[in-house]
Amino acid sequence: MSFRNNLESGAFVVTAEIGPPKGTDIKDMLHHAKMLKGKLDAVNVTDNQSAVMRICSLAISKLLLDMGHEPILQMTCRDRNRIGLQSDLLGASVLGIKNVLCMTGDHPNAGDHKEAKPVYDVESVQLLGIVDSLNKGTDMMGNEMKGGTDFFQGAVVTPESNPIEPQLMKFEKKVSAGALFFQTQAIYDIKKFTDFMKFAKSFPVKILAGIVLLKSAGMANYMNKFVPGINVPQDLIDEIKNAGKENALDAGINIAARHIRQLRDDKICDGVHIMAIGAEDKVPLVMERAGLL
């Protein structure tokens, strides 16, 4: 069954993230992909994440598809104008990629090519509209195409963005533009996330909670300080601290597993998106402890 069908059937879906490497040595990435095979509903392939230049999302999505994974092609608007984006979407379609996650993309300032000219010819909401047009068989200008696409298109949302009102306004625009599923920024406060879900559930979209695996108390503090929209509560930081340095990652795995279990058992959202950020080999363990395997 496909990611789309699983979501639409009401199953609790699990996706994880694969970051294409910088350089052509893909051994480690393939190793992680093999470990995750058969365990996930879909695998997200990031698009020059954090504006750091790497192998393109499209090529790795195709490799993973050939391995038997169902890829979600992440697509940002930072590096391509509207012609390039549509062209790559058509390319993805003929390569058999079914899912696309539309994002604006981190500014080049965050990455390793700070002198790059950012494109942002269109942005996330408009990219969703573009996918919708391609799905209907025309390009964004309304020109007829010989064969359209059949994408299942999603977007991202930051439930703990501050202030929240403009973020929710944008969420609504993304829904109107055709987003069918959402992946959230990392969430750590299930109660706050439940409040967001009360709002989100009034829209006909599926929501996958973002789960970022905490690897140390330092990582949690760093994210609290530097990553917008991420708030790791102090009691979780203490839990990792109290576990001691050697067991910090294990405590992080427990927290992730506990959150996933609660989100599923209490039917808070439609699934989770696990971001292990360098610890992809731990994803099966998180899933096992969450009772998903």
Binding site: P166, Q167, P228
Partner: peptide, 20 residues
């Protein structure tokens, strides 16, 4: 807006400040 966004803030908005 450093990204020239037309439909609202990106996920990088942070307590009223920009991710840049």
């Amino acid at each position: 807006c450093p990204k020239g966004l037309l439909n609202g803030p990106c996920g990088g908005t942070n307590d009223g400040k920009c991710e840049i």
